[in-house]
Deep mutational scan, measured.
Amino acid sequence: MKVIFLKDVKGKGKKGEIKNVADGYARNFLFKQGLAIEATPANLKALE
């Protein structure tokens, strides 16, 4: 799953980066902790 990092995550990505991560890791950790959001077209446009 492609995500946009909202904060730096050690070993995974830095704020503003778009990367592929495992679906479960994204849903169960990154999204719940507020560290990333899904890289949807609307979210990508908002990032610009």
Rank of each mutant, 00 (worst) to 15 (best):
M1G: 05
M1D: 04
M1R: 08
M1S: 06
M1N: 05
M1L: 14
M1E: 05
M1K: 10
K2D: 10
V3T: 00
V3G: 00
V3R: 00
V3F: 01
V3W: 01
V3E: 00
V3Y: 00
V3A: 01
I4W: 03
I4L: 11
I4T: 01
I4N: 01
F5V: 00
F5T: 00
F5Y: 07
F5G: 00
F5W: 03
F5E: 00
F5R: 00
L6T: 08
L6N: 01
L6P: 00
L6Q: 03
L6M: 08
L6R: 02
L6V: 04
L6Y: 01
K7E: 11
K7V: 15
K7Q: 13
K7R: 14
K7M: 12
K7I: 11
K7A: 12
K7G: 05
K7T: 12
K7H: 14
K7D: 09
D8N: 10
D8K: 05
D8F: 08
D8T: 11
D8Y: 07
D8E: 09
D8S: 11
V9Y: 04
V9L: 06
V9M: 06
V9T: 03
K10D: 12
K10W: 14
K10A: 14
K10L: 13
K10E: 13
K10R: 14
G11R: 06
G11S: 06
G11Q: 05
G11T: 05
G11P: 03
G11N: 09
K12P: 01
K12G: 14
K12D: 08
K12F: 14
K12I: 15
K12T: 11
K12V: 15
G13S: 05
G13L: 02
G13V: 06
G13N: 03
G13Q: 02
K14N: 10
K14H: 12
K14R: 12
K14E: 10
K15I: 10
K15L: 08
K15W: 05
K15T: 09
K15F: 06
K15M: 10
G16R: 03
G16K: 02
G16I: 00
G16H: 09
G16M: 06
E17H: 05
E17T: 06
E17Y: 03
E17W: 04
E17P: 00
E17F: 03
I18T: 07
I18Y: 03
I18N: 01
I18D: 01
I18E: 04
I18P: 01
I18V: 11
K19A: 09
K19S: 10
K19R: 14
K19I: 12
K19E: 04
K19N: 04
K19P: 00
K19H: 10
N20A: 12
N20S: 14
N20F: 15
N20G: 09
V21N: 00
V21I: 10
V21G: 00
V21T: 04
V21Q: 04
V21K: 00
V21M: 10
A22R: 14
A22E: 10
A22Y: 12
A22S: 15
A22H: 12
A22N: 15
A22W: 13
D23W: 12
D23A: 15
D23L: 15
D23R: 13
D23V: 14
G24K: 11
G24L: 13
G24Y: 14
Y25M: 05
Y25H: 06
Y25A: 05
Y25I: 09
A26Y: 14
A26G: 05
A26K: 03
A26N: 04
A26I: 11
A26V: 11
A26P: 01
R27H: 11
R27Y: 12
R27W: 12
R27I: 14
R27L: 15
N28V: 08
N28E: 15
N28G: 09
N28T: 10
N28L: 14
N28A: 09
F29Y: 14
F29M: 08
F29H: 11
F29S: 06
F29T: 07
F29Q: 07
F29P: 02
L30E: 01
L30H: 01
L30F: 02
L30D: 01
L30M: 04
L30I: 02
L30G: 00
F31H: 01
F31Q: 03
F31E: 03
F31Y: 07
F31T: 04
F31W: 03
F31N: 01
K32E: 11
K32A: 14
K32M: 12
K32G: 07
K32P: 14
K32R: 09
Q33H: 15
Q33V: 11
Q33A: 09
Q33D: 06
Q33P: 02
Q33W: 15
Q33F: 15
Q33T: 11
G34F: 09
G34D: 07
G34S: 08
G34A: 07
G34N: 13
G34V: 03
G34H: 06
L35S: 04
L35F: 08
L35W: 11
L35M: 09
L35R: 05
L35K: 04
L35D: 03
L35V: 06
L35G: 02
A36M: 01
A36I: 09
A36G: 05
A36W: 01
A36K: 01
A36N: 00
I37S: 03
I37R: 04
I37G: 01
I37M: 11
E38F: 05
E38V: 05
E38G: 04
E38A: 10
E38L: 07
E38Q: 10
E38Y: 06
E38H: 07
A39L: 05
A39E: 02
A39R: 01
A39V: 05
A39K: 02
A39Y: 08
A39D: 02
T40M: 03
T40D: 05
T40K: 03
T40A: 03
T40I: 05
T40S: 10
T40E: 03
T40W: 03
P41M: 11
P41I: 10
P41F: 08
P41W: 11
P41K: 09
A42F: 07
A42E: 15
A42N: 11
A42H: 09
A42R: 07
L44A: 03
L44R: 04
L44D: 04
L44Y: 04
L44M: 10
L44H: 04
K45I: 08
K45G: 07
K45N: 13
K45F: 07
K45R: 09
A46F: 11
A46P: 06
A46G: 10
A46H: 11
L47T: 09
L47Q: 09
L47F: 14
L47H: 11
L47V: 09
L47Y: 14
L47R: 05
E48S: 12
E48G: 11
E48W: 08
E48H: 08
